[in-house]
């Protein structure tokens, strides 16, 4: 299902599918149908479902995520895993959308998909002019920065065994987590048709030589930034984009927050949080100390991960698996990441 005509049929097919799940429901109607996130990752459809059942008229805000067959990193985090993670998180203190159904039958929508709750809130693009202004204004109001830090602390405080998240793979304590991450991104790089890049090899060898040790294993989101959070009334209403989650060193997430990747030229972490406030609030909430040395290491690991992303993304276009020219553009992001890595390594 890849033509525009096929895609146009998806809302009808979603409605027909929901009818099979809501067996007591009648008069199903979808309103406010909106398709977002085209091409890069899984397709996302938002809508309000109206129907009648024995109790009378009902309404559900729903979100459908569909695997279009060529999503970036689809083999590393498929929708079934995302669904399982959301199911596990439902009983925890972390705000996440309720997961309703996962469907592996590709005949229905042309690819596997999941149905989850449409949580109230908005997710502003942190890189756009409007989004940048919004986060800066929110930083001054103060509630959202505190919610940003508190939500990360909550995420890292989840009892992941109790939540049933062991299926994500438990790394060995010590150096196990970083070793697994390096191996994962190495494999992705090797799967592409890009020729070996000496700076990337230097970076990988350096990472293998300097692995930090940790005994604290938590759930790690893997991309904790404003663009992956739903915000309602200056508070985080849901943590989204469960595509890169792992069990590992929480400093991996903290490093992502501390990096200057998402600051948009401001001194604020994620263009939102004062560094000192983040440190004191996070440390108080988790009763731990932020290991800045480990964060510097993970920052270098993010450079490897970014290079792997861009190699994989640009390959999707180069090998004809996707026609999205934004993916072709990422081939020139690789040198930018490697230049940054070289500076991190001191040259």
């Amino acid at each position: 299902m890849s033509t525009a005509e096929d895609v146009a049929q998806i809302p009808t097919r979603i409605r027909d599918y929901l009818q099979t799940r809501l067996t007591d429901a009648s008069d199903l109607k979808m309103e406010n149908v909106e398709r977002i996130a085209v091409g890069w990752s899984h397709e996302t459809w938002l809508f309000d479902l109206h129907y009648r059942d024995r109790s009378g008229p009902q309404q559900m805000g729903l979100c459908v995520r569909r695997d279009p067959g060529n999503a970036l990193l689809r083999h590393l985090s498929d929708l079934e895993q995302q669904f399982r993670v959301l199911e596990c998180l439902e009983a925890t203190a972390l705000q996440t959308p309720k997961a309703y159904w996962f469907e592996s039958d590709t005949e229905i929508l042309g690819g596997p998909f999941l149905v989850m709750e449409k949580v109230p809130g908005t997710c502003r693009n942190p890189w756009g002019r409007e989004g940048r202004a919004y986060y800066q204004a929110a930083a001054e109001r103060g509630t959202l920065p505190a919610s940003f830090t508190a939500t990360l602390a909550t995420l890292h405080s989840i009892d992941w065994r109790d939540a049933g998240l062991e299926f994500l793979g438990t790394p060995e304590s010590g150096q196990g987590f970083a070793k697994r991450e390096i191996a994962k991104w190495r494999e992705l790089i090797a799967s592409t048709e890009h020729q070996p890049e000496p700076i990337l090899i230097d970076l990988i060898c350096w990472l293998e030589d300097n692995i930090p040790s940790t005994d604290r294993i938590t759930l790690v989101h893997g991309a904790y930034r404003t663009g992956n959070l739903l915000i309602d009334d200056d508070r985080i209403s849901a943590v989204l984009d469960w595509e890169l989650q792992v069990l590992g060193d929480p400093m991996y997430d903290v490093a992502y927050v501390l990096s200057d990747l998402n600051r948009e030229g401001t001194h604020l972490l994620s263009n939102l949080v004062e560094r000192d406030a983040f440190f004191s609030d996070y440390e108080a909430a988790t009763n731990t100390t932020i290991d800045e040395s480990a964060c510097r290491y993970y920052n270098a690991l993010y450079a490897m991960r970014s290079a792997a992303f861009w190699m994989s993304a640009s390959d999707l276009y180069a090998t004809g698996k996707s026609d999205d020219i934004r993916l072709a553009r990422t081939a020139w992001s690789i040198p930018v990441v490697l230049e940054r890595a070289a500076r991190d390594l001191g040259y």
Partner: peptide, 10 residues
């Protein structure tokens, strides 16, 4: 080696 790598990335 890194002198050469820096020149290459530049």
């Amino acid at each position: 080696i890194r002198v050469t790598l820096r020149a290459d990335i530049d």
